[in-house]
Amino acid sequence: MSSPSTNIEPTGPRPHPWLEWDRVVVYAFLTLTALYFLAPLYIVIITSFKDLDHIRDGNIFWPQTAYPDGVHFYDPWRRAWWEVCTGLECHGISPNFWNSVKVTVPSVIVSVAVALTTGYALSNWPFKMSEAFFTVLIVGSFVPYQVMLYPMVLLTKNMGIYSTLTAVIFVHTVFGLPFLTLLFRNYFASLPVELFKAARVDGAGFWRILIQIFVPMSLPILTVAVILQVTGIWNDFLFGVVFAGLPNYPMTVKLNNIFTSSFGVKEYNVEMAATILTGAVPLLIYFLSGRYFVRGIAAGAVKG
């Protein structure tokens, strides 16, 4: 094996050493920022498992490891779910959890269905003035809700649904429409137009094309829309406090009331447990759906 072409000198890029300084810097930066983002969650979780004495004397960074007799680590959570008071009413945050469910499920179904149809009509069957309507819709979605808040109150009073869950559902449908329509319109516009044309040639009409071709094809963006709406509606505060009425308050409103209206000793651990309970549903959805969540945000914002 001594032909001149066998060269022992190495060619190609130099193999990476196990430890490079620029990689260390990158990972150090990312880890430190990740710790900063995780710290509040950690602090809140350990606080929710402490008893009040430990909160008063201890350090927010360290968890409580030993409990006095008769005190359980889950006590604050139990109190937050079933017992904590706002004003004279002491049923914990659980009724409001169900209120939130009762608002979120119908709002998501109605708003996604309406937006799907509208987005399809706007992208594939444009009519005179449709772009003008769409422009107003998008501008409207950026205007602060406070501008339309009071007339909406009058409108729902007129409809006889003010201070019921129906009103909250109605308002979420109205104000969820712009972003969802944008999402569906852009998605349908990105589908190959030949598909639509072929269906037209075969004699399918507006509704038939929608139901038999576009709805089955829109499954990815449908998932994205549902995820965004569930988290968005669950996290809403303003519409809940204005339109729901006292017995129908969703979870976020109740949470805020727990913080502002507690008599006597402030139970910080219970408050923190209630906070985690309120954040649990969107967090769970986020962790389970991860990629779709990011994709939805990117689809709405970047593609434009």
Partner: peptide, 30 residues
């Protein structure tokens, strides 16, 4: 890393506000 950076965005502003109010609180927090 992306999951960690983005998870606060899934939370309600109400939750975020109360979490940070706890951390900022002079007599109990940081």
């Amino acid at each position: 890393f992306r999951t960690i950076y983005l998870y606060p965005f899934a939370l309600s502003f109400i939750v975020t506000g109360h979490v940070w109010a706890w951390i900022f609180s002079p007599e109990y927090g940081l």
